[in-house]
Design a protein around this nucleic acid. Sequence first.
DNA 1: CTGTAAACGAGACGGTACGTCAAGTCTTACC
DNA 2: GGTAAGACTTGACGTACCGTCTCGTTTACAG
Lengths: 174, 174, 174, 174
Amino acid sequence: MRTGRPRDEKVRLAILRAAQELVLEKGYSAVTTADVAKRAAAGKQTIYRWWPGKGALVLDAFSEWVSQAPRMSRRKPSLSSTLVEFCRGASEAAPVLRALMAEAQFDEDLHRRLIAQLVRPRGDELRACLADRRPADRELVVNVLSGLVWQRLMLNEPLDARFVRFALRVVQRI
Amino acid sequence: MRTGRPRDEKVRLAILRAAQELVLEKGYSAVTTADVAKRAAAGKQTIYRWWPGKGALVLDAFSEWVSQAPRMSRRKPSLSSTLVEFCRGASEAAPVLRALMAEAQFDEDLHRRLIAQLVRPRGDELRACLADRRPADRELVVNVLSGLVWQRLMLNEPLDARFVRFALRVVQRI
Amino acid sequence: MRTGRPRDEKVRLAILRAAQELVLEKGYSAVTTADVAKRAAAGKQTIYRWWPGKGALVLDAFSEWVSQAPRMSRRKPSLSSTLVEFCRGASEAAPVLRALMAEAQFDEDLHRRLIAQLVRPRGDELRACLADRRPADRELVVNVLSGLVWQRLMLNEPLDARFVRFALRVVQRI
Amino acid sequence: MRTGRPRDEKVRLAILRAAQELVLEKGYSAVTTADVAKRAAAGKQTIYRWWPGKGALVLDAFSEWVSQAPRMSRRKPSLSSTLVEFCRGASEAAPVLRALMAEAQFDEDLHRRLIAQLVRPRGDELRACLADRRPADRELVVNVLSGLVWQRLMLNEPLDARFVRFALRVVQRI
DNA sequence: CTGTAAACGAGACGGTACGTCAAGTCTTACC
DNA sequence: GGTAAGACTTGACGTACCGTCTCGTTTACAG
């Protein structure tokens, strides 16, 4: 049986919400774990008990945010609509995504989490839209598309409609 | 006319060499400007007088390194040989490139320098190999290739021969 | 009438024993209430329910220890033998006594407890050996002797036989 | 030759003054190194560069304070006047002295500093007043007097005129 | 040859974030 | 209501790195 005081879900949510708000307000690098604790009316120690650092915390905060917009559609979505939606989300969260990917370059653990929580799921979504392609082609397309998107993010170029058309044109050629 | 003591070229080179050595030995994030100054038998101030920070310094250090292997060939190189060479270089310097691109996400100025000194030149090299393609296609291919490479770097996946074959296959389809 | 579960004497003793052991093993300041709880297989709350803090707990732990060596002698003991015994005890427990007196300087409540449980009883023992002196002299001697001992403790100087001779010489002069 | 930027005397004094002021205002344990740094408009690191911690800093701050009241008298002062002066100073600074002696019980280095900077000098002053006594007696008296004073401090009892008379009576008997 | 002005090595400095630690309180389920 | 377990808030701690500053010294060029 589990003993001791159970983890307080309200505190967990308050921390995630505070992290998200602060990052949106001031940007990733201007936020400190102490700021988040303050805003969440929590102790710094509580944050460090459950997350290894700012990166993993912010990643969780935005992972939950993404998950709150569930993909309900029962039917297989089209590639183009998925890509549009994909770029819209990435565009909104661009500063956070850039910061997380950057931080992950300095932090092996965060790198793993980032891939598992953000990179892979998005790849899988794309893959799901390409069920009718041959497996080898599918990987090609997924790699090219996500490569284009991440490059665009890191080079701080817009992920707009023009980009989506560009990407789709590339894919049709393959 | 400029008066005062002129900049000491030996010092400049010692700093660049020290930066390069230390980054190769301990990795980008484990090196501080103070470390570089110490190793180069220079003062921290001398570093900050000529570079805005660690990022720009390391970028310069590795730009010079890259330039030391000049592309001598007078004749237009093939895309595949260029890509092979490209990946070989990127693979060797992968940890530094990852760190610089990451740091650039937090530093507007470094971001500009990185694009001007590393990203754009490499794009131009690729473009030069694609002189026979239609301009629109050329951009497509350059984008896709550099997207694939940077993604590979940031996800810490190998830029090996298998990857080169993969990339070339993609390009041939376009 | 008292309701609810009565205080568990075994727990009380386990806590006191754990506190004593740990303080002897690692020293007062290296021990935390959490450590004591762990060793005693008790909860931190149980400690804080019955003692205001580490200081009072350790004081109790060592008060009991001291009391376990009860002074049985029915006849009035001599000053010199009392002093010898006094110094022997103080010497053994010196680190704890130093720490408790130190802690008491930052904690009003512990200060009172320390005086009531350790300082005053020892003064009274001395007083009992000086029944044949004039009251005013008696206070003089008690003050001088306990002053010498506490000073010796706080300055971390030995309370050895040489010191006892020294102290007795002082007293004979008064 | 001394190289590098020399230590800034103004900063050193600002830190000592800030430490002294804050300790007098809020009491030793309510003051943190960060507070002192803030008040002195200094960096925390600057404090830790020159002092091992709060204890040594406060000790220095009050050592200087004591030294600013120099004993100018060329002629040998009387024991009683020295003792009066002694008690007056100890009485004023009582809270700080108690805290420092307490802290020193947990900190070997501070203990040494405290003895060298405060305990020994005061003992020497007393010794100087007892030049006409036999050496063995002298030590006796010095020990008894300082023992009485420190005990009085640690037990938080007043070092008033009554105490001085008491102490002098003791000494005359020896 | 001499004065001036910038470069330089050394390292102190103010500032800020970090991650850890202990103290004391609170919340479960069990007894 | 006592108890074990352990999560919680709070706040000090000491460290690390950043970029600036302030010394004394060195080096070129100007007068």
